[in-house]
Simulated assay, not measured.
Amino acid sequence: MDSSYEQELTVVFEAIQVATAISRTVLQFLHPSSDAGPAPAAPADPELAALRTSLQVLKDDNTFVTAADLAIQAVLLRVLSVAFPTHRLVAEESAAQLRADPALLAIVTSLAVTHSRASAFVWAHGGGDVAAHVMRLFDRAAAPQPATSALDPTWVIDPIDGTAAFMRGEHYAINVAHLCDSRQILSVVALPLLSPTTTTPITDADTAPASGGTLVFAVRGYGAHVAPLGSPSESRALPRHADAVPLAGLASVTCYGTLKSGYDGMHAAVAAKLAMPFPGTNLLGWVPRWAALALGLGNTTVWVYRRRDRYAKVWDHAGAMLLFEEVGGMVTDVDGRDIDLSPGRLLNANFGFVAAPRSVHHHVLAAVKTLLQEQGRAGFPAK
Rank of each mutant, 00 (worst) to 15 (best):
S235W: 09
A237H: 04
A237R: 11
L238G: 00
P239K: 07
R240N: 12
R240I: 12
R240F: 11
H241N: 06
A242Q: 09
A242C: 14
A242H: 08
D243L: 15
A244Q: 15
A244L: 13
V245S: 03
V245H: 02
L247K: 04
L247E: 02
L247Y: 04
A248K: 06
A248R: 09
L250W: 01
A251T: 08
S252V: 13
T254M: 06
C255V: 09
Y256N: 11
G257V: 10
S261P: 14
G262E: 15
G262I: 14
D264T: 15
G265A: 13
G265M: 09
A271S: 15
A272P: 07
A272F: 10
A272W: 13
A272V: 11
K273P: 09
K273V: 11
L274R: 08
L274S: 07
P277S: 09
P277Y: 02
T281K: 10
L284P: 05
G285Y: 00
W286E: 00
W286K: 00
V287S: 04
V287N: 03
V287E: 03
P288N: 11
P288V: 07
A291E: 08
A294R: 05
L295Y: 09
L295T: 05
L295G: 03
G296S: 12
L297C: 12
L297W: 09
L297V: 12
G298M: 08
G298Y: 05
N299D: 07
N299H: 05
N299G: 06
T300F: 06
T301L: 08
T301A: 11
V302P: 01
W303E: 11
W303L: 14
V304F: 06
Y305D: 09
R306K: 15
R308K: 13
R310P: 10
A312K: 00
A312S: 10
A312C: 07
A312P: 02
H317F: 12
A320M: 07
A320Y: 06
M321T: 07
L322N: 06
L323Y: 04
L323V: 01
L323Q: 02
F324K: 07
E325N: 07
E326T: 06
M330E: 14
V331G: 00
V331E: 05
V331Y: 01
V331W: 02
D333A: 00
V334F: 03
G336K: 04
D338F: 09
D338W: 10
D338N: 11
I339P: 00
L341N: 01
S342I: 14
P343C: 05
R345M: 08
L346N: 14
N348H: 15
N348P: 15
